[in-house]
């Protein structure tokens, strides 16, 4: 479905991704782990069209999509739930969710999806007229995920969805992500909490200083001692 081949990206003058290749198959749940500053966010932003790669290519269902505008990427069915939520603080919860469906024109179906979203996150329904800036961290994360679903993506890329959240809420968020995946949306998850991510992922990539250093099934990675030492502190 999504194939990244030998991607080279500069962030300003600094080399952020050296030669990254990655594959996400239909309906898969893929985790991307690695230390801070490894280039995980850069990779997602490049796929989303916010950054232009210096070399390499991004293929979406076998056609090249690098160099395409971010709005077109969303239209193709790739949605990103960014790190730090990136909500509009002075807009209501409902408005933020509606913005998620910006690329869609089918008003009726958008309204239906909004209802579905509220079923998924009942808490947001209660607060749909509240300004996003006044929500708690967990609620904001829910809005962010819900918003990224409103474009009806085929691939959902989540960047650190559990960052800064209390354990209970964290678990809830992951439950939701699993549910999203199980209803047919492919997931590419960037996560610091490797243990948590590996509970759900079909496959995982390890990115270190701009390079994919390992990729395998989670259970295989967990079997390697150097991986355990580096990422689980065991």
């Amino acid at each position: 479905m999504l194939e990244v081949k030998d991607l080279v990206v500069y962030y300003g003058k600094a080399l952020a991704l050296e030669k990254v290749s990655l594959l996400v198959k239909e309906n898969e749940f893929v985790a991307l782990v690695g230390p801070n500053g490894a280039g995980k966010t850069t990779l997602l932003n490049t796929i989303s069209g916010l950054l232009t790669p210096a070399a390499g290519e991004i293929l979406w269902n076998n056609s090249k999509i690098n160099g395409i505008k971010p709005s077109e990427i969303v239209r193709l069915g790739i949605s990103q739930c960014p790190e730090g939520r990136k909500l509009a603080p002075e807009m209501t919860v409902r408005e933020n969710l509606e913005m998620g469906a910006f690329v869609r024109k089918d008003k009726k179906k958008i309204a239906e999806d909004l209802e579905k979203t509220f079923q998924l996150f009942p808490r947001l329904k209660e607060r749909h007229l509240q300004l996003a800036g006044t929500l708690s961290g967990g609620e904001r994360q829910m809005v962010a995920i819900a918003r990224s679903l409103m474009s009806r993506p085929r691939l959902l890329m989540l960047d650190e969805p559990s960052l800064g959240l209390a354990p209970i809420i964290k678990e809830k968020i992951f439950e939701v992500i699993r549910e999203i995946n199980s209803t047919g949306t492919t997931v590419l998850l960037v996560e610091q909490d490797t243990q948590m991510a590996f509970q759900f992922a079909d496959r995982a990539y390890v990115l270190e200083t701009g390079n994919i250093v390992m990729h395998d099934k989670p259970e295989h990675l967990l079997g390697q001692s150097e991986f355990r030492k580096a990422y689980l502190g065991l």
Binding site: L50, P70, S71, K86, A88, E90, M91, M99, F102
Partner: peptide, 24 residues
């Protein structure tokens, strides 16, 4: 309006606006 909301979104959260597919 759709355009008005998009305008507010760009003003409040440009990065987010790009990601939801607004032509900033």
């Amino acid at each position: 309006t759709r355009f008005g909301k998009a305008l507010r979104m760009v003003s409040q959260q440009q990065h987010g606006a790009y990601l939801v597919g607004i032509d900033v």
